[in-house]
Computed example of a mutant assay.
Amino acid sequence: MRNFIFLFFIGINLELYAQKQSFRLEGEVSNADSISTITIMVIGNNEISEPVSKVRGGKFVFEGYVEHPCLAIINSDKVKGGLGVWLTNGIIKVNLAPYKYEGQTEHRLQTLSIEGEQESKDFILQMNLQNKIVQSEKNILKRNTLIGDEIEKYINAHNNSYLSLFLVNQAMYYCGVQRTKKQFFSLSKELQYSEEGRDFQKEIEKTEQNDIGKKVEDFTVPDTQGQMKQLSTMIKGKTILNFWASWCAPCRHENKILIEHQKLLEKKSIAIISVSLDEDKGDWLKAIQKDKLNWPQLSELKGGFNSELAQKLKITGIPYTLLVDENLKIISTNFQDILSIVKN
């Protein structure tokens, strides 16, 4: 599953503290004697007193304020973060330990137990349930349906919970855009018109436009030499359209994966075309060279997400990857699913 995390630590004055919910996260790490520091990354506009905590006797503490319940990823100096902790008002007690799920190549800090508000407990229950389904059901269609059903059950029972809004975001992958749209509009008006809710409505619009079976709207964009290239004339068969930027770390990671699969892609007669949202040509060309990208590269080099192309295709986040056929008809909109198609 894919999790996209944006971290903003924005200073706020004392008059705003009363509007926020205070939390105290008391943690204990089991089976990891070598861990000496723990760090916390919180989504959204929140205040953490200190984002790094020393581990003493296997224990650590974080305190701060959150505008509303939200996800926090807990990392350490030895083991990367796993599912994370759902922060809510009040005291939360969590026991973590390194754990490796089936199919993973490394251990991650996962939650063994948690005490606090029910929403914090519900988060880990939902994540564990999804992982259990992933491990037990190998048929992708059945797996996605089962996970989508569980998400819908929770949303129907908790339509005013920020955890439900978080799960709706996940549902886009498992349920498809139409079912997810129905789930989103079953949430409370407060959630729908929250900042996160408005952002997700934009995601729905983008997904509806670029849904499986629909055609990507043709466009003409310069290549690295400044020559104008029309997408429809470049595509001769199945093609991966990869939207990225030099400053986007997850995009650079996807570049690496595409390089690793390039021979297999060629064997399957699947081409790649990358479209960058960079605005600085030097940064763009340097990233192409460093990542050793030897397939067509296009960019308007202006506007970023506000560029004409990004607005036309409703691109609101990157990396964003599509698999299309020779007629620009969309076959897949998910990077992992595209890799599965390539491998099978």
Rank of each mutant, 00 (worst) to 15 (best):
I212Y: 09
G197H: 09
Q104R: 15
D325K: 06
E102Q: 10
F4V: 12
S274A: 15
V134G: 01
N45Y: 13
V216E: 12
N327W: 07
I40V: 13
M127R: 06
Y154H: 10
L141M: 11
V61K: 11
I133T: 03
L298N: 07
F8D: 12
F243H: 07
V134Q: 08
S113P: 03
I73Y: 06
Q227V: 05
I92T: 06
I35D: 13
N159P: 13
S340Q: 15
R24L: 15
E152H: 02
N294S: 10
S164F: 10
D337S: 09
G237T: 10
N255A: 11
N210R: 02
I140E: 14
N144W: 00
P319L: 00
L165E: 04
V85W: 12
I212Q: 01
G90M: 08
N160Q: 07
F9N: 12
F9R: 15
E326Y: 05
L241P: 06
E308N: 15
L109D: 13
G226V: 01
L83V: 10
I270D: 08
Q192P: 03
V55C: 00
S22I: 06
G237P: 01
A97V: 09
E190S: 09
L328I: 12
Y99T: 04
Q336T: 13
G27V: 01
L323N: 04
N45K: 14
T233K: 14
I5N: 12
T239K: 00
L191D: 08
T145I: 08
Q297P: 03
N89R: 15
L293W: 00
M228C: 00
P222L: 02
K256V: 13
E117C: 01
E28Y: 09
A310F: 05
K59Y: 07
V177M: 03
P69A: 12
Y99W: 10
Y174I: 01
E208R: 05
N156I: 10
